[in-house]
Write a protein that binds this DNA or RNA. Structure first.
Lengths: 204, 204
DNA sequence: TGATAGATATATCTATTTGATATATCTTAC
DNA sequence: GTAAGATATATCAAATAGATATATCTATCA
């Protein structure tokens, strides 16, 4: 109860779906959750060990050929802990957005700096938007026809229709966010261009 | 060049406006940049010392009465380093959004869990939206009348009109983002309610 | 056949960052 | 003058990121 780490809950939550190794968990997060969550190995492996010592998960060592494989399963207390967290209060994410920091700190420099930053940012966000759009299309189509897309369900372990629905809704969060950022780019570029004109006229 | 820390650039950027103490910097970030940046003392003080040993800033110890005060100023190499960073590549922020994690991990639980999470989130975001709206109004009014609002300029050290414009634009980023999140709440709540109906009918 | 390039899987280490807390000084109201 | 609370400065343990190390597996082609 003392630890403030969210990693353990991310891990417990994924283990509540199916037993997995650290590598599996990392892959699942990277492939499917990356638009809202990240974990590093450096955090993952110690957390898995801690869950075992706390009785929230169990570790079993399989061996296929020479490669050893440590698969972790959630225990009943682990499931309990996961549900408690889910029902408890949710912290605001801490944000450190390098682009916004740059833009803000460019406010004393010539306007061209700000405009250049905005245009780069817009390009970056457009690319993200396209990536999202592709994923969204595939998923929405799969959900429409009640058809499990092999690739998706394999990598992400999405089995039920409801799970796919939640995944799609999660993705929509990213889609709407990136759309908002693009809209912001447009209005900000306009605002700076307008300001530039004001300055030019004042300079006459 | 080896360090990947962004903290030093945040600090250099603020020092490029005016000399400040660690406490001043922390206050300025907390008051004005919190919608896109955060720094902790634990990072701030070591960073300030490092900037001094690297020749990017200088430290002067003033004393008003008994309280000692360490004021840091940017040097020319420091200004150079800041500008290099500004012109260089910008990393995507890493996101760990506890709410979205919860929502996604609730996909195997009864729909009521997801709906409850969404409704709490909506309330939270509505409050944030109101806070932003207030700040935005004050700032926009100040900019309209070319009138520097005391409070703002004092705490944030916003002196020029251009600086206030950039601050307002930064804030707009937050405003549009929170609006997008609220829109997402609405469509997601609808989607889950629709799904609930589908299930009810299937259960007949 | 066996050498090897690259992918897969597991793990650790250091640097960075957070969040909580410690300590002293200043200000104000009583 | 003194106690409560605000201001200012700083440190430390826990959490996290990012880079890297190491070994195993797979496919391919010389």
């Amino acid at each position: 109860m003392k630890t403030r780490s969210k990693t353990q809950f991310a891990v417990l939550g994924l283990l509540s779906w199916q037993p997995m190794s650290g590598y599996d968990i990392k892959k699942m997060i990277t492939m499917g959750l990356s638009h809202f969550w990240a974990e590093s190995y450096g955090q993952l492996y110690p957390t898995l060990e801690k869950l075992v010592t706390d009785g929230l998960a169990t570790k079993s060592s399989e061996s296929t050929g020479k490669r050893k494989r440590h698969v972790f399963s959630i225990t009943e207390p682990g499931r309990q802990r996961f549900l408690e967290w889910l029902a408890g209060p949710t912290d605001q994410p801490r944000i450190r957005n390098e682009f916004q920091l740059k833009f803000f700190l460019a406010s004393e420099l010539p306007l061209a700096h700000g405009l250049s930053l905005l245009e780069d940012y817009r390009t970056q966000q457009q690319e993200i938007a396209e990536t999202y759009a592709r994923s969204e299309q595939i998923l929405a189509a799969a959900l429409e026809t009640d058809d499990a897309v092999e690739e998706i369900s394999q990598v992400l372990g999405l089995t039920s229709r409801q799970q796919m629905l939640f995944f799609l809704i999660s993705l929509r969060h990213g889609v709407l966010a990136v759309e908002a950022r693009l809209a912001w780019c447009e209005e900000s570029i306009s605002a700076l261009k307008k300001e530039r004109k004001v300055k030019e006229n004042a300079g006459d």
